[in-house]
Nucleic acid binder design. Structure first.
Lengths: 246, 246
DNA sequence: AAATAATTTGACCAATGGTCAAATTATGGC
DNA sequence: GCCATAATTTGACCATTGGTCAAATTATTT
């Protein structure tokens, strides 16, 4: 929750507050109904303003949805950067990002679906250039958080440099994470794969990539249970519900 | 291309042929413009029938798109099953599926985007139950092709059973594959990850998962270049363009 | 309190997914 | 070949909805 900036005029603060109100309700509708099953009129009613006022904040419905997604992505980046501050071996810090990602996914169960929609060029092209840029920026923050740890791991010798480049390793981790979150929401697959705890499945897949990369210490070489407890306690105390699962 | 079934009447054959024509043009529009930037009227013009006739084949625009996606997915499953017939070690056969997946992705560059749209419940619920079922069926065929090899690999001792279950391993491979294809289409990420050959990136990530699973022989224990050449020659001769890249 | 500026509104428009009665075409009997 | 009936195709029409903008309302200044 950003605190009101006293340097802004009352008008400006009201404008920002209203934008947040709109985004809040749009997020709820998006979560409850997806993209199609609600319209701008309904949203206008929900926020108790008229449709015309909505269009003073957002150039199109797509622009609005991108705004919601970027808000989420910013939180994701915040969590990622917070995770990188974990004190420990490089792979433990990578693991902290894994928890950050799951913490985020639980708070934003609709995010990955929305983000997949955004990847359609015909969709995102209807959003304003400013919001497109803001979204790319927050995405880059997430990417850099991972990439930075990987570069450091390679410098320290935790992660062999001869197999893949730092960028390839980053791409692998990003891909497996996004893929796991998306596939983990597929009802059919969940049943057949016998997935009970989706977040655990995501983190297992991240571990498999890290092991495949030869990132020391490997899964069986170290007691990561202790690490996990520390990550949850120090970095994500609100996520203590995972303690039993981890 | 399915050959006409003589057991059907002329009318029935014509109906099927027309449905394929519609799907063909819908696929083209979907590839060129995504989902939103074309309408049923335009499609009707393209196939030289009226809008009403389209709705004798498809219950909604979403139903139509699902039809296109299922057609693609069927080809994917065909390629996967073909790949499983490769003669060799279990991990080599898994690799053949990796090539099958890339062969498919090159032939259907829009597939993963479309499929992500389908995952939105508000979208797929507008399609007919029959087509929903058909899509799930083809998806299951892909899943089973991978799962079968993994089960066999565990039975033969190529793949350790003590780390993960066969279903977890399958889920990991599916996730990394889908995630890599999707992320590999992200323009920003492609630049920053320095990805030149997207398909190579997908297969590298699959290799990392397999290595992480401890699937013997590991990447550095075996000359997979020779395997790759055989896969391309024996299973996907039309994909010889990859020879230099592989 | 009046004049002016800024903001909000909702009637209105255009585009489009979907429907269905009418028109057209095909089929079958004689 | 012709008529009657059935099957199919059509496009005018409808309802919904994203987006616009002149008029109404509210706030600010003089």
């Amino acid at each position: 929750m950003p605190s009101p900036n006293p340097a802004l005029s009352r008008k400006e603060r009201e404008f920002i507050a209203r934008e947040e109100l709109i985004l809040k309700h749009a997020r709820r509708l998006l979560l409850e109904k997806g993209f199609q099953a609600w319209n701008m009129e309904q949203l206008a009613e929900a926020v108790e303003y008229s449709k015309g006022t909505l269009y003073q904040h957002f150039s199109s419905k797509e622009d609005l949805v991108l705004g919601v997604a970027t808000q989420s992505l910013r939180q994701r980046a915040d969590l990622f950067e917070k995770a990188t501050t974990f004190q420990g071996k490089t792979r433990e810090r990578c693991r902290a990002i894994g928890f950050a990602c799951c913490e985020f996914a639980m708070a934003h169960p609709d995010y990955f679906h929305t983000d997949m929609m955004l990847k359609s060029s015909s969709f995102i092209e209807k959003a304003s250039a400013e919001r497109q840029q803001a979204h790319a920026f927050e995405g880059m923050r997430c990417w850099r958080a991972i990439n930075t740890i990987i570069i450091e791991a390679m410098a320290l010798g935790d992660l062999p440099k001869d197999r893949v480049t730092a960028e390839q390793a980053t791409f692998a981790l990003v891909s497996v994470t996004v893929g796991s979150h998306i596939m983990g929401q597929e009802p059919n697959l969940k049943v057949f794969a016998g997935i009970k705890d989706q977040m655990q499945a995501v983190r297992l897949n991240q571990d498999l990539i890290c092991d495949g990369l030869g990132w020391k210490p490997l899964l069986h070489e170290h007691d990561y249970r202790a690490t996990d407890l520390r990550i949850l306690k120090e970095i994500f105390p609100s996520a203590s519900k995972w303690l039993k699962a981890a």
